[in-house]
Amino acid sequence: MSTAWSFYLSTVMVYLGVNVMACLGLNLQYGFTGILNFSFIVYQAAGAYTAAVLTLGPHTAAMSFQRYIGGWSLPFPIPILAGGAVGGALAAAVGWIALRRLRGDYQAMVFLVVSLIATSVATNDVGLFNGSAGLSVIPKPLSGVVGMSLVGYQWFYVGITAIFCLLVYIVVRRITSSPLSRSLRAVRDHEQAAAALGKNVAALRMVSFVVGGVIAGISGAVLVGFISAWSPGAWLYPETFVFFTALIVGGTARNAGAALGALLVPVIFLESTRFLPQFGPPGLIDALQWVAIGLMALVFLWFWPRGVLPERRRIIALPTLRKESEREGAQA
């Protein structure tokens, strides 16, 4: 394998890992709990900014070309974990406002507005994260310690991404295979009936929302450590829609579906356009891509609303029955 290919492949692998994490998180919220979180990208951005300003050195001399809060030069893996914590805390704050008392469609509206506003604040408040120019030259985790070649570090980072991806998968998997998953799906399928069975609907939504927020934050923190830059342009509200399309294509309420969607939509589909010859005025290819993403979601919702890997029927074996009840069952 040539160095260029090795470099490219490792880059794609990191993107894949980040997108798998994000899709698993959103799937927990949307697929399992039925929350239309149109602000998902905001928690990813929060994680990325947090990790960035904790990794960056003090805002002086060498860094005086950009303004930001923090600048504590914290070592790996603290910035990534902090990114997750901030993503979760932000989700808790937004969830506290939107999830407690509002009906689902109103929640969707509020989330969309949150996403637009967050972009506006990060863009206008230059002192926070350097405004619309965003942060750059963010140090790569452990890059000074491991002392590898450029390509070597790329693969090292694939390893870091894989570890976080695995951790996220284990957490999500434990939730989605537990009795808690049934309660979440009950909230999704029939909110009032769930409440009538003693389920605290608002609290259950909150759990799913905050765990999703933590995962989003971690994914953002892992991503920013790799690309070393982050600006409002990277997380405009349509980006959340890429994840939704990924879930719709891959299959909602199924972890394998979320992972497949992450591979198909943000990685294979969006990466493949990189190889197209440039044509038309600037922005044309981007716009065409967005139209294609929108159409993809519509086409799947029309023809395959359950996605490539539909939600599984979870079969649970019954314990051996007493003879008489079996006979009764056969008569019915």
Partner: peptide
């Protein structure tokens, strides 16, 4: 008001609070 995306058995298991 069934939980349509779950099996009958899962519907019953969900019912138990706590």
């Amino acid at each position: 008001s069934d939980f349509a995306g779950m099996t009958v058995l899962e519907n019953l298991l969900t019912a138990r609070f706590g």
